[in-house]
Design a protein around this nucleic acid. Structure first.
Lengths: 342, 342
DNA sequence: ATGCCTGGTGTGAACGATCAAATCCACATG
DNA sequence: CATGTGGATTTGATCGTTCACACCAGGCAT
């Protein structure tokens, strides 16, 4: 005697008996309703409802070679403060997947190599149909490995550094985000608008830098010496902002590549007896929960992860439908959430 | 022609052929190695390795009535700032599950009722073997529903308000946490130690309040008027702390029920020109990322979610092993992370 | 009337694993 | 020598679904 789960499963056979039709007819009622005569369909559906039938996933999976599961690796949230975006994304992905009758299967891995082992394991056992990858980076081994085997997957993140992408991806247009931030500050009357970002080399960081640069140049604003870059983090942001604010001609607007940096910038502003939002404007990136919680409210660029998630699922569904689809990418424009800091 | 996933699956039959034994022998090599003669086992294992065989999950699941999947509902992270704990928990749970050869299957639900629908759906289709529930609360419909059907599940969170629990649970001892915080402040020389918490009624909140009260009474410290309670959030914490700091005899130590409240308290301290950690000590709860990021570093009580996760998986594994086990609970003691604020 | 098609429904086989039971073999025992 | 014993291995059946195909009735053209 096992646990309660042992309860007799309601099988296709049982429903067929109840509706006085064959197994296959019930199966068709669910998978190919157009094949049935209207009254047969109605009868079948009624029996399905009254008996509360759900097809056994294992049996279906065994026969159709599809588990209706999408693999996703959650990573140990590194900095912590930015993990919130991935958290929102995970939730959105889960909801989006449900629309296509997919579920998410989670697994962990400490690095890319063991993530690949995870793929291998899951695929060999036919446990998942496809993967969603997050946090793509330059020379990503994972995408290469999956592409070589022509396995279905979509990345949340561009194929950084690849001239012509070999796979499907969805990403948020970081440059458009920082660009919007600059435009926003210009409308607020700012002229000297600086950028606080990460060291060159990271795709995401460079992208956000590009947006600032583009907007500043397009509007004929000063640019010289107004871009400072250092590692992510509150303390780092404070130091970088301090350097800017202590210039002979300090900027009045600070566009940051992350909320962590922006938090630090806010502190540097306060350190100097200035008031954020009145004397100096600060804009963050990612609209993490702290952005709302912090003192005057931090204006921040919000990634529309819900849109990204549905785009990803859509691309995935195409790729799983059977027809071979060429690699495709989608850039989603983020939105600026205005708060007290600007 | 479908996608690359179509690659011929390596089947038990194929491995058996390769090792010159029968299907069942290979199966035994994996599931019941003790039944095989040493040399046969070695041969079987060698063949398994060279062919890179993994049992087809669907087939195994169909036959054994177990999917090796644990269902977990992720909720739209409400306040956001505390979502970080659930995030860490999710990760830990994923790792712990792997030890017992389980994976996590995620699903979403907007409320408890639709969460129950989710259970029903997944169980009817035999998609999962068990569930892990988080955020239990008073009069939880979900646990009742699952218990009634004697389905295997474990909650992360006590069965609040139930006299004798009907199910397995694991929780973090919040009272022990706040108690430790008070003891810590006493060692630092504080005598007037206040508590900032949530309104009475929530199990978690009352638990944390209890710990403070217990420690204060045990050490003969003043208690009158030193417990203030209001909704969670930074602003709320600021207001509540302000009230305490403006007393004729203000407390020198503030123990808070959350990092959000503590963040507000820090601000109230600064508002009055006091220095946190020197003049007034502040302790938070949950050790969210902001605790480390904030000004002098926020001392906070950290929930050992890794321990909780392994305990949960252990309880679950027991319940899934076949033998009927009585309801059991486990309380895990949190640890105090000391930082600049105390 | 015969044949062909088409839409609707039923039948047998197959997916790949494990369970239960049968078989085989070596060895000890009466 | 026959019989029993227990360990090691194999065989057949089975889990619940969908696929491929067979069947059947009726309409239409020949």
């Amino acid at each position: 005697m096992r646990t309660g789960q042992e309860r007799q499963q309601i099988t296709l056979e049982a429903v067929a008996l109840h509706a006085h039709v064959s197994r296959q007819t019930i199966s068709n009622a669910l998978n190919a309703p157009h094949r049935l005569a209207p009254d047969t369909l109605a009868r079948a559906k009624r029996s399905i409802d009254t008996l509360g039938y759900r097809p056994n996933q294992a049996a279906r999976s065994l026969r159709t070679l599809s588990s209706q599961l999408i693999g996703f690796r959650i990573e140990p949230d590194r900095d912590g403060i930015n993990g919130a975006v991935l958290d929102r994304f995970l939730h959105a992905l889960c909801r989006a997947a449900k629309f296509e009758d997919y579920h998410l299967l989670l697994f962990t891995a400490s690095d890319d190599a063991s993530e690949i082992d995870g793929y291998d394991e899951l695929l060999r056992g036919r446990a998942v149909d496809a993967f969603v990858l997050s946090s793509t980076h330059q020379g990503d081994e994972r995408t290469r490995w999956l592409t070589e085997r022509s396995l279905p997957f979509v990345t949340f993140g561009r194929p950084w550094g690849e001239t012509d992408p070999q796979h499907a991806w969805v990403d948020v247009d970081g440059a458009a985000g920082t660009e919007a931030a600059v435009e926003h500050l210009i409308r607020r009357g700012h002229r000297r608008i600086a950028f606080i970002g990460w060291p060159p080399g990271s795709g995401v960081g460079d992208d956000r830098h590009t947006g600032w640069r583009r907007a500043v140049l397009a509007n004929g604003l000063p640019q010289q010496g107004l871009a400072v870059r250092g590692e992510d983090g509150v303390e780092s942001g404070r130091a970088l902002a301090a350097k800017l604010l202590d210039l002979v001609q300090p900027p009045s607007g600070l566009v940051c590549a992350s909320d962590s940096l922006a938090l630090g910038a806010l502190r540097a502003v306060a350190d100097r007896g200035l008031v954020a939002g009145r004397d100096t404007a600060v804009v963050g990136f990612d609209d993490t929960p702290v952005a709302m919680a912090v003192a005057p409210g931090l204006t921040s660029i919000r990634q529309p992860v819900e849109d990204a998630a549905s785009a990803i699922v859509r691309l995935l569904a195409e790729r799983l439908s059977g027809v071979r689809v060429p690699p495709a990418g989608e850039l989603i424009v983020p939105t600026l959430i205005e708060r007290g800091s600007s």
